[in-house]
Design a protein around this nucleic acid. Structure first.
Lengths: 219, 219, 219, 219
DNA sequence: GATGAATGAGTCTTCATTCAT
DNA sequence: CATGAATGAAGACTCATTCAT
C-alpha cells in the first residue's frame, strides 16, 4: 500500500478532497467562471474582473478566497492534476494483473476507456493545464510528480508483465508508454479540439486504437 | 503541377520568401527577441517593452515595423505555418510514389525524417503556434488551410496507394494520418519539451517508430 | 404642457439631475479638474494624467468612473448642453406671452438676462463646448437637438407673436433669432474671453443691446 | 502713410508676401494638407505623420521646412491674420470718407462685403484660428495687435465721422464696432459652419444686416 | 533637398490587488 | 463575509522630432 501522505502530493490530495464540499455557492461560481475564462482566453489573457463579472461576485470577493490570480489558477488545476493519476492509484494494477486471463488488449481497453472518460469530463481544465504548463514551473513539477510516482511506476509494472508474457516487444517501458499515450492524446486532441462537432463513434475509434497498439507493439 | 499562386497561401508564401532578405539588422533582432519572449512567456504574457529591450531597440521601433503586437506574432508565425506544408509541396509525392520499390517503411522514413528535421529547426516558433492556436481564430484558419490543402490531400494519395498495394490496413485515411502524426508529435513533445536534456538517439528512435507504425498499420 | 420625457433628451436630463448628488468627493474633484484642464488646453491637448494629478486621485480612478477620456468630456458637457435649453422649457413662453403689457423689449430683457446669467455661471464648460463642437459629431447632434426642439420652437412662437403685434419686422424668424443671438454671443465673447478684466457694467450693456435690437428689428 | 516696418507686424507681412512665391510644390502640398488636417481635427488632434501622408511627402520633410509642428501652424495662420487687417490698410478709410455722399449704409456695405469675401475665401484657416486662439498666447497677441493697430484705429475714425454727421448713436466706438462685428460673425458662423448646405442668398442677407445695423445704430 | 528609420517620452487604458465600509 | 472604490504599476501604442544616407 502507498502511503498517501508521504510526499507533496498529500497537499494536493487534501485540496482535491475538499473540492466537493466546503465550498460556498459564490466560490463554486468563481471557480466555474474562472475555468471558462482561463480556458477561453488563457491565464495571462484573462482578467480577474471578467471572472468576477461572469461569476456574479464583486472583484474583491475573488481575492478573499484566493490570495492571487495564480492561486486561483492552481486551485482549479490541482485537483485535475491529481485526478490524472488518481484512478490508477485507486484501482490497483497489481490486483488487476493478478486476475487470470488478462491480456494486453484488455489492459489497453481498461486504461483507454478510463482515461478517455476522464479527458471527456475535464476538457476545459485539461486545456488550461496544457496551455499553461510551459509557463509555470510549479505546474510542471506537479504534473511530473504525478506522472512519475503515480502513473509511470504502475505502468512499468504492467508493461514488464506483458513483456514477460511475451505479448509485447522488448522496448524500454518509457518508449512503450509514450507510444500508447501519444495514440490516446492524438485521438483526444482531434476529438475534442480539432473536430469536436464531427460525428464520432468513440467505441469504434477506441477499438481501432487498441488493434493498432496491439499490433504495433507485438513481439 | 501545383500552381503556387492559386490561393490565399501565395500571400503567406511571399511573406515567407521575403523573410530572409529585405530585413534590417534591427528587424532581425526584433524578430529574434520576440520569438524568445513569446515562446518563454506566451503571447499575452509577453510585453513589447521586454521584447524591445532584448532586441536592443526602442519600443517605438517595434511598432514602426509591426503595426500591432499581434501583427508581430503573425509575422513570426506565418512563415513557419507555410513551412509546415512546404516540403510536401516541393517534393511531390506523386513523383516519389512513381519510383519503384518504394514501400511504406521508406515512405514513413522520408516524412518522419523531414518533419523531424523541420520541428528541430523550428522548435521555438512551433511552440508559440501550439500555445496560441487556441486563442487566435486567424491562426486556426491558417493552419487548417495549410493542413487540408497542402498536406492532407497529398497524404491521402500516398495512403490510398499503399492501401491498394495491400501494405496497410483499410481504415479511413484520416485515421491513419492521425495515428502517424500522433506518433511523431508524441516523440517531438517528449524529445524537445519534456526531456530535452536526456541523451537521445534520434536515428534509433525513428526506426522504432517506423517499425511500430508499419506493424500497427499492417493489414 | 411639454412632456419632459418625450424624447432622447430625457436621458440627458436625468444625467443632469443626478449630477449634483450621487457624486463622491473624488468624482467631484475629477470633474472639476477635468473642466479646468479641458478648458485650458482643449480636449486633445489635455492629458488624463494631468487631470488625475490636479484632482488628487490616481490615474486609474478616472477610468473607474468614466470608461474613456471622451466619456469624461461628455459627462462634463452634457448637463450644460441640456441647461442651454432648460430655462426656456421651464418658464414657458406661452404663459409669459399671455401676460398683458409684455412688449418686445421686456421679452428681450428676460431672455438676455437669463442667458447672460447662464453663460456667466458656465463659462468654462461653454468654452469647452465651443472648442470641441467641431470635432465631435455627437456633440453637434446634442446641441442641435436642444437648439431645435427646446429653443427655436419657443422662440418662433414669441417672434411670431411680436410680428403679429406689429412690433418687429417681418423677416424669417430664424434670421431674427440669429440677429438676437449674435448680439448676445458677441457681448459674451468680448465680456468673458477677450476682455474679462475690463470694468464692465453689465446692466447698462444689456440695456444698450436691448435698445439696439428693438430699434434694429422695428418694423 | 503708415510705415509698414514700424512694428512686429513687419515680420508677418514679410511672411505674407513670400507666401505666394518661393514655395516649392512640396511645400505647397504640405501647407494644403496641414490646413485640411488642422481644420478637421484641431492642432492637438492632428498628427504630423497624417499631414505628411496627405501631402505625399516623407515625415522628415515637414521638419526640414518647419522647425516644429507649432511653426507649421503659425506659417499657415500668420498670413491670414495679417490679411484680417490688410484691406483696411490698403484702401485707406480716410480717403474713402473724403468722398462725398458716403453714408453709413454704404460704409457698412463696403466692409461687410469685403470681410464676407475674405471669410469665404479663408474659411478653413479662420476656423483653425478660432479653434486655436484660446490655446496659444502668441496667436492671441498677433490677432490683438492686428485688431487694435490695423482695424480698430481705422474703424474708430469712421465711427466718429458718422457720429459727427449725426447718422449714428453716440455710444463708445468699441460698443458700436462690437455690434457690427457680432452681426457679421453671427452670419458667417451660421452660413459656413452651422448650415453650409442650406441655400443662401448672400446679397439679400447682407442687405438685411445693413438695414438692421443702420436702424439699430440710428440716433 | 528629401527621405524614412529610429527614438523615447508620453498617451490612454487595463489590471491585480488592497482596504475601509 | 462581501463589497467596490481606489490604487499605481504596467500595458500597448502614438507622436514630434532627429539624423545618417
Amino acid at each position: 500500500m502507498q502511503n498517501l501522505s508521504d510526499n507533496a502530493l498529500s497537499i494536493l490530495l487534501q485540496q482535491y478532497l475538499e473540492t466537493e464540499k466546503n465550498l460556498t455557492e459564490k466560490q463554486k461560481n468563481i471557480l466555474k467562471a474562472a475555468v471558462a475564462v482561463f480556458s477561453e482566453k488563457g491565464f495571462a489573457g484573462a482578467s480577474t474582473s471578467e471572472i468576477a463579472q461572469k461569476a456574479g461576485v464583486a472583484e474583491g470577493t475573488i481575492f478573499r478566497h484566493y490570495k492571487t490570480k495564480k492561486a486561483l489558477l492552481f486551485s482549479i488545476v490541482s485537483p485535475t492534476i491529481v485526478g490524472l493519476g488518481a484512478p490508477i492509484v485507486l484501482k490497483d494494477f497489481e490486483s488487476i494483473l493478478e486476475k487470470q486471463y488478462v491480456d494486453f488488449a484488455d489492459f489497453l481497453r481498461t486504461i483507454i476507456k478510463d482515461r478517455f472518460e476522464f479527458i471527456k469530463n475535464n476538457q476545459a481544465i485539461l486545456k488550461i493545464i496544457a496551455n499553461e504548463i510551459s509557463f509555470h514551473l510549479e505546474l510542471q513539477q506537479m504534473v511530473k510528480e504525478i506522472l512519475t510516482t503515480r502513473i509511470m511506476t504502475k505502468i512499468q509494472l504492467a508493461i514488464e508483465y506483458f513483456q514477460e508474457q511475451g505479448e509485447i516487444v522488448l522496448l524500454p517501458y518509457e518508449t512503450i508508454a509514450r507510444l500508447i499515450f501519444s495514440t490516446i492524446a492524438g485521438y483526444a486532441v482531434t476529438r475534442f479540439l480539432i473536430s469536436p462537432n464531427q460525428d464520432w463513434n468513440d467505441e469504434q475509434e477506441i477499438e481501432t486504437m487498441i488493434e493498432f497498439l496491439v499490433k504495433g507493439l507485438k513481439t
